Computed example of a mutant assay.
Amino acid sequence: MNNYDDIFDTAVPDEQSFDKDAWAERKQAERQAVYDLADATAADVCADGAKFQAYLDTQARFDRYSVTNVLLIMAQMPTATQIKDFDGWKAAGASIKRQQKGFSILEPGNEYRREDGTIGTSYNVKKVFDISQTTARVKIQPAVSTDERTLLKALIYHPPVPIQTVDELLGDAGALYDHEQQVIFVRRGMGAEDIFRSVSMELAHAEIAATDGSYIRDDNAFSAYCVSYLLCKKYGVDVGGYDFSTLPYFFREGDTQFQRAVLTEIRDTAANISARMSRALETRSQQPKEQER
């Protein structure tokens, strides 16, 4: 039998052999460029009300994505609605259109041990494409058939504190989270959308207070306001009354770490409330028809 192993000896010249250090340096530079882009976008977003609202709109569309990835999507493909990597679109039966370039987000990699003994997670740059860059047909999602009562019941599903209705509230507020009494008061007689807007904001206060041992209402008012906006955008409640033209001074002038912490608090709080709503709506959809009367 002939031996052909020798044909591989000269297939790749020695000078083209894999350089692990050079590859690691390229990857690190690629990651750093992505982090720099996210930081620059965050600085723009936190300094301008219109850009901040655009960021919230992007976060509402990609509510399961991290703050950093939403900032990256906003910076590179602000009109994106559905993203996958090359293999993801291939598995979905679609291909990337000619001359379309992917954009970068971050995905979790391996865990590692820091010098102080704590465990961290490394992140890798991942190239993705929006559906508009592919041959996939944009599917018009049918409107979710959720009546107002069902949506409101989902909003208050397993709340972090009890909810109690009252005839009136100070300043004609629609709802109010009382931190001392650990209860949310809701004014009777409001319409469905007013209930959703006001109660979602107070649920946000209660949610934040549950994880903040030094909770102060005024300090968290902006975050709760943004959470309410995100929930309204996701569930189709009118947001015409929300105003981000002037961002709070403490947020606008805060350092990068503080601003990122606020953005993360907004994202995580909205995600927690939305997760409960999704469970409630899913449970509702699985109930036998005869029970829906």
Rank of each mutant, 00 (worst) to 15 (best):
Ile163His: 09
Pro248Cys: 01
Glu111Cys: 07
Ile273Gly: 06
Phe129Ile: 05
Lys97Leu: 15
Asp36Tyr: 12
Ser228Met: 02
Val70Asp: 13
Phe18Arg: 11
Pro159Trp: 07
Asn3Thr: 11
Thr121Ile: 15
Phe251Lys: 00
Asp218Trp: 00
Ile119Gln: 02
Lys289Gln: 11
Met277His: 04
Ala91Val: 08
Thr10Gly: 06
Lys51Ala: 13
Gly49Ala: 09
Gln28Pro: 00
Ser104Trp: 12
Ala154Met: 07
Asp268Gln: 10
Gly109Lys: 05
Ile7Asn: 02
Val12Phe: 08
Asp194Ile: 08
Asp178Pro: 03
Ile156Lys: 11
Arg113His: 13
Ile208Ser: 00
Gly171Pro: 08
Asp218Phe: 01
Thr121His: 02
Gly213Ala: 07
Gly189Arg: 08
Phe251Gly: 00
Arg31Met: 14
Met190Ile: 13
Ala54Leu: 06
Gln99Tyr: 08
Cys226Asp: 00
Met1Ala: 08
Lys127Glu: 09
Arg279Trp: 11
Arg188Pro: 00
Leu155Trp: 05
Lys97Glu: 09
Glu292Val: 12
Val166Ser: 10
Pro288Phe: 04
Ile184His: 01
Glu193Gln: 08
Asp268Glu: 13
Trp23Asn: 11
Met74Asp: 05
Ala221Asn: 02
Thr269Tyr: 05
Ser245Met: 06
Val34Ile: 05
Ala38Lys: 10
Thr146Met: 12
Gln182Cys: 04
Glu180Cys: 03
Leu152Ala: 09
Thr81Asp: 03
Cys232Met: 13
Ala92Leu: 08
Lys233Asn: 02
Gly191Tyr: 05
Val144His: 06
Phe185Gln: 11
Phe196Pro: 09
Thr246Ser: 11
Val34Gly: 04
Glu202Trp: 00
Thr165Leu: 12
Ile156Pro: 00
Val237Ala: 03
Leu56Ala: 04
Pro142His: 09
Ala271Glu: 13
Asp212Cys: 01
Arg293His: 14
Ser198Leu: 02
Val227Tyr: 03
Phe196Lys: 15
Gly102Trp: 08
Tyr242Asn: 07
Phe129Met: 02
Asp130Gln: 09
Tyr235Met: 05
Gln182Ala: 08
Asp130Val: 07
Gln76Trp: 07
Thr146Leu: 15
Met190Gln: 15
Ala91Met: 10
Arg260Pro: 07
Phe18Glu: 11
Lys126Gly: 05
Lys90Arg: 15
Ala224Trp: 00
Arg188Ser: 13
Arg188His: 11
Ile184Cys: 03
Ala270Met: 06
Met1Phe: 15
Arg252Leu: 03
Ala175Met: 05
Ser104Ala: 14
Ala22Gln: 04
Thr146Ile: 15
Phe222Ser: 00
Leu152Arg: 12
Gln16Lys: 12
Glu25Cys: 06
Thr264His: 10
Lys233Ile: 06
Ser198Ile: 02
Ala22Pro: 02
Asp194Gly: 07
Asp63Lys: 13
Asn69Cys: 03
Ser198Ala: 10
Ile119Lys: 11
Gly236Ser: 07
Met190Pro: 00
Lys51Arg: 07
Tyr4Gln: 10
Ile156Phe: 08
Gln257Ile: 15
Arg187His: 01
Glu292Cys: 11
Pro13Phe: 01
Ile73Gly: 06
Leu72Ile: 06
Thr211Leu: 06
Ile96Leu: 09
Gln82Ala: 07
Arg61Gly: 06
Gln28Phe: 14
Ile273Ala: 04
Asp87Tyr: 12
Arg217Tyr: 03
Arg197Thr: 10
Gly174Cys: 00
Ala209Pro: 03
Val144Met: 12
Lys289Cys: 10
Ser228His: 01
Ile83His: 06
Val186Trp: 02
Asp147Ala: 04
Arg113Pro: 09
